[in-house]
Design a protein around this nucleic acid. Structure first.
Lengths: 181, 181, 181, 181
DNA sequence: GATGAATGAGGCTTCATTCAT
DNA sequence: CATGAATGAAGCCTCATTCAT
């Protein structure tokens, strides 16, 4: 899975033939099929694994009882930091969501059903209710949050810009400005 | 190029073999090579063509002397409307930017050198100077603008959400909130 | 198709990889796929082609108004001669009927619906009606006819026995003895 | 061997990978190789085992001193019943004889050297001598006997026809009609 | 002796590209 | 210029067999 992650993150699904993944993992090509039924299965399991880790990391130390704004900034920062620390994970997930694999998944995500998203959705819903957050559907609020985040991480992992500490916080606050009333 | 656009937008680069593009264009497979040296060249020219059209449409009627905020909202709305009107263009560009093709291009874009972006960059630079816009590098301001926009259009073209008129304007204003001081 | 016929007849479906078929046909491996969607399709079309030829040859000069026995002997001889003249066709068809490909086909054959068999089924039915032929279901009468025929041709094509003219006629008569009252 | 028999009978040689045979036999894949040098050896030994059993069953209670016709009918019935009782054996043997494995074996059989066939060959030879049976080579007489038998059993095991008691005897008699003078 | 993960040759198929017509 | 059949490298996957445990 590690070999697959690296290759796919670097070169995309097409640039990662099973033979090369096997070579990178120092096993024979056939060996992969002892553990994964097919390339599709390998990729899907890889995705699930990554999602699990991210979800876990985000929920850790979550200040569940802090004010809305603080909770938002915390989440934003955590996701951002996770991706900056694991650029390969980010690149892989981008490929994934932008492929037939990820599209059905996105549907659930939009509806806020995905496990890792309940925290953010809660913030949105509570915020709207309390007149702190703009009265948008969850999908739009999520776009205002993750849109900039993903864009920036992408440029960062590609080495185009350099995100440093004070900037990260200011980014998070700017996104809060976008959704708050 | 039209045939290629449709196929790639719908099925991705891998789902668009030259033979099928040729069939859709009602020419023989070999004919394509009279006009394009290779599939890569075809795709790159297609991309350039789309960029040109978007750039053109955006610059049309641009209120060059209106206040900053108004210019920003105008641009945001124009881009948004363009993509909603041409979902295939959007889908193609997404594929493109998310592939090895698009990465080198992005570098230039980040640096604000791309032709179609000068208008927005001007707004950012003037805004920062006049203390109206947050003091971020252009790349980050662009992320705060285009990030939400692309996210939403994607969900829209995939049929996950429905963007209607009043929402569009409110979105633009939310993004302005993100970058303004 | 000729190359496939020869290889499959000689070595069976497993001993006839597409690459080898292509080589024997003096084309590249991929070329086959210009004409046949898959190996399965190639094999099925080959089968249909052979069936068509046999059916045609059998119906030619058929003495439709001769006595039952004569018609039977004529048919028996024609089929026998065809296979002795085209041993590859025979070997191929044997492989085919003995594989998943052929089993569904056999069902129709048993029911006498296959085009090439109406002549024989007519003989059986008329024979039973006129009390000349034993009162068996068509499927059993067909077995008494084709069973020996196929067995012998098989041994002949494998070079185990040598079928010569007078023997052929006697064989046909022996089979007639089996089904006549 | 039992596991191999079932799988091969049901799905053919190609549909019976060693791993699956091992699984069905509730041993590890490698274990098979402790007892059989290779898949080929396994298959050949399986074949020999089945032949032995059939030969044994046929010779049991054989009315060695009954008239020719009776002996013939007895043998025919025994073989037929054996296969109807053990359809998997039949299916396996069909696969076997129709594959490269079986061809060399058939040569011996044709020459009447195979152990299990001496009884029938004796009948043929004595019958020819006594002018009761048509003056054909043994191979042809065997075809007239086994040809219909195999055809019918095949259709029966595939579920296409239903062989019931009175029919079986009539079949045997029809085959006797074919070979008797 | 038993295990079963590892191996890698070999099978089917796709598709960007070429080139004779 | 247009055609489209031919090409063959490359991709995914299967499976008989081996061997360290």
């Amino acid at each position: 899975m590690e070999a697959a992650l690296e290759l796919i993150a670097e070169k995309g699904f097409h640039g990662a033939p099973m033979a090369e993944i096997a070579e990178k993992a120092k096993v024979a090509a056939g060996t992969i099929y002892t553990y994964f039924e097919s390339k599709d299965v390998l990729i899907n399991e890889l995705h699930q694994e990554l999602e699990k880790r991210i979800t876990f990391e985000i929920q850790e130390n979550f200040p569940a009882f802090a004010p809305l704004r603080e909770r938002f900034l915390y989440l934003f920062g955590k996701v951002l930091q996770y991706f900056l620390k694991h650029p390969l994970h980010f690149r892989f997930l981008e490929q994934y969501y932008n492929s037939p694999y990820g599209i059905s998944l996105r549907r659930e995500r939009i509806l806020g059903k995905s496990e890792g998203q309940t925290l953010l959705m809660d913030i949105f819903e509570q915020g709207v209710e309390e007149n702190i957050v703009k009265k948008f559907p969850n999908g739009i609020l999520a776009s205002l949050t993750f849109g900039p985040l993903f864009f920036l991480v992408r440029d960062h992992t590609l080495g185009f810009i350099n995100l440093e500490e004070p900037l990260l916080e200011q980014m998070a606050e700017a996104c809060w400005d976008a959704i708050k009333i």
